[in-house]
Structure formats: structure tokens, C-alpha cells
Amino acid sequence: MEPDRVIYPLLKHVLMGPAMRVAFLPRVSGLAHVPRIGPVILAANHLAFLDSFVLPLMVPRRVHFLGKHEYFTGTGVKGRTVAALFRGLGMIAVDRSGGRSAVAALDTSAAVLERGGVFAIHPEGTRSPDGRLYRGRTGVARLAMRTGAPVVPVAIEGTDRLQPVGRAVPKPGRIGLRIGAPMAFAGRDDGVPRGKAARQVTDEIMEAIQRLSGQEYVDDYAPRPSGPSGR
């Protein structure tokens, strides 16, 4: 048996899952909207690094998501522990330094969905610097149109209060997770320029997230944080 298939249930059901419920008292609504089988894209807002743990641990299916290659290259006990933790949670390493990084990320994400898996993505591309919802990048739409997988909008609430920018360890408090109805976009680029279709689909997804979260919307891309910890 692969090591991550052992680590995943241990983290979710024995260690981190129960600990998260005690520390963050999560209020989760709309879980019935997540299909029990088959490919699905979870498209969520992004408020804090903590979000990377909220989705994999609160959604009943195994969730995969992309992460920095650097998370898997640490040395020593700490480096190996961090790599095992993220791998167990479903993170897939992607090297974003090359010119073909966007294509590689799309191919990797599509492979998860083609196997019938669940893939999570933050369309904003980085965490919000001020709690508002920023314009989505079109990767989520291109992935949905390429694979035909439904998109389930998700609103994460409260993680920015518990882990503001610069805070490594979140403080205890209440968080929320609101999950909306699946959205289908297969064939939306038929007879339409792919770039135009991708923009329209992305905007529809962001509107669905905004309705769930109640965040103020900013029709501009969120600035990427500087430094090695930015995501």
C-alpha cells in the first residue's frame, strides 16, 4: 500500500480532522452538493494558508490540490515530515518556476479529474490581502471545459481572522464552509473563442462564490504576496 494512502485516513480521521473540529468548531453546510463519485472541481475563495487544510479535512471525499514544489524538497526530519503531511492531505507538487508551469499545472489537475477524483482550486490564485474577493484567473474554467467535470463553488469563512498574514500558527476560533450547487460548463467553448469562454465561465464561478461568502468583490487580480511563504 502506498504511504500516502495510509497517512491520509490517519490525518483525516484520527489526528488533524478531530483536532480541527475542536480548535475551529467548523460550521459546514451544503456537503450534499459534493458528488459522491466521479470527477469534481471545488472552487473556493482563499483567505489564509489554513484553507489548504480546511477543504481536505472537512469534505468527505479525498481532495487533491496543487502546492509548491519546495514543500516536498526539505531536508532532515522536519523536511520529510512536512512533505509527508502535504502528500497525505492530497497536495501534488508543481514546479512553478519554468515557462511551461501553467501548462504543467493544468495537465496535472486534469489527470486527477480524468481518474474520477476531486480537485480543489482557488481561482483568485493567491490569498486575499484584505478579506475581499478578487477577480478569478481562468485556469478553473479551462480545467472545467477540458474535462467536463462539474464545478462546486465553496466559500470559506473566518480563516483570515484566525490566521492573518504573517501568523504561522492559527489561533482557535470558529470557521465556516458553505458549499453551493454544482455548475456544469462542458461545451461552453463550442463555437466561442476559448479565451472569451474561459473568462465568462470564470466570472460565473466567482459570482457563485461571492453569493455564498458575501464578500465584497474586486474586479481586479489580487496582488501576490512577496517572500518565500507567499501563495
Results as ranks from 00 to 15, higher is better:
residue 18 P to A: 11
residue 223 P to T: 12
residue 70 E to W: 00
residue 169 V to Q: 07
residue 59 V to H: 03
residue 35 P to E: 08
residue 61 R to L: 10
residue 205 I to L: 06
residue 88 G to H: 02
residue 195 G to H: 05
residue 223 P to V: 11
residue 164 P to G: 09
residue 167 R to S: 12
residue 88 G to M: 01
residue 230 G to L: 05
residue 15 L to D: 00
residue 221 Y to S: 04
residue 58 M to D: 01
residue 46 H to I: 09
residue 199 R to N: 01
residue 97 S to P: 03
residue 148 G to C: 07
residue 88 G to T: 03
residue 52 S to Y: 11
residue 160 D to C: 00
residue 162 L to C: 07
residue 39 P to F: 09
residue 146 R to H: 10
residue 6 V to L: 15
residue 10 L to Y: 10
residue 174 R to H: 09
residue 40 V to M: 03
residue 26 P to M: 07
residue 186 A to I: 00
residue 92 I to K: 14
residue 27 R to N: 12
residue 140 V to N: 01
residue 3 P to R: 09
residue 227 G to A: 09
residue 212 L to D: 01
residue 28 V to L: 11
residue 80 R to N: 14
residue 199 R to T: 14
residue 96 R to D: 05
residue 208 A to Q: 08
residue 19 A to Q: 02
residue 174 R to C: 10
residue 100 R to N: 14
residue 12 K to Y: 02
residue 6 V to Y: 10
residue 115 R to F: 04
residue 1 M to R: 15
residue 149 A to E: 06
residue 138 T to R: 11
residue 174 R to V: 14
residue 31 L to N: 13
residue 191 G to T: 11
residue 17 G to T: 06
residue 48 A to W: 00
residue 204 E to I: 00
residue 218 V to K: 04
residue 26 P to V: 01
residue 227 G to Y: 07
residue 159 T to N: 12
residue 43 A to Q: 01
residue 214 G to W: 09
residue 72 F to G: 09
residue 83 A to R: 11
residue 156 I to C: 04
residue 217 Y to M: 05
residue 113 L to W: 00
residue 60 P to A: 11
residue 206 M to P: 02
residue 40 V to Q: 01
residue 227 G to R: 09
residue 29 S to H: 00
residue 153 P to F: 10
residue 69 H to A: 15
residue 166 G to N: 03
residue 148 G to V: 06
residue 74 G to P: 06
residue 210 Q to P: 00
residue 117 G to Q: 10
residue 124 E to G: 15
residue 16 M to F: 14
residue 44 A to G: 07
residue 105 A to I: 10
residue 60 P to S: 13
residue 157 E to M: 14
residue 214 G to M: 10
residue 72 F to A: 14
residue 151 V to A: 10
residue 160 D to Y: 04
residue 137 R to F: 00
residue 217 Y to R: 14
residue 109 S to W: 02
residue 106 L to G: 06
residue 134 Y to D: 09
residue 24 F to E: 01
residue 55 L to Q: 00
residue 104 A to Q: 15
residue 20 M to A: 13
residue 230 G to I: 05
residue 207 E to P: 02
residue 185 F to I: 01
residue 151 V to Q: 08
residue 117 G to D: 12
residue 20 M to T: 03
residue 146 R to S: 07
residue 65 F to K: 07
residue 7 I to V: 15
residue 49 F to M: 13
residue 100 R to Q: 14
residue 35 P to G: 06
residue 231 R to W: 13
residue 220 D to T: 13
residue 5 R to T: 08
residue 56 P to S: 07
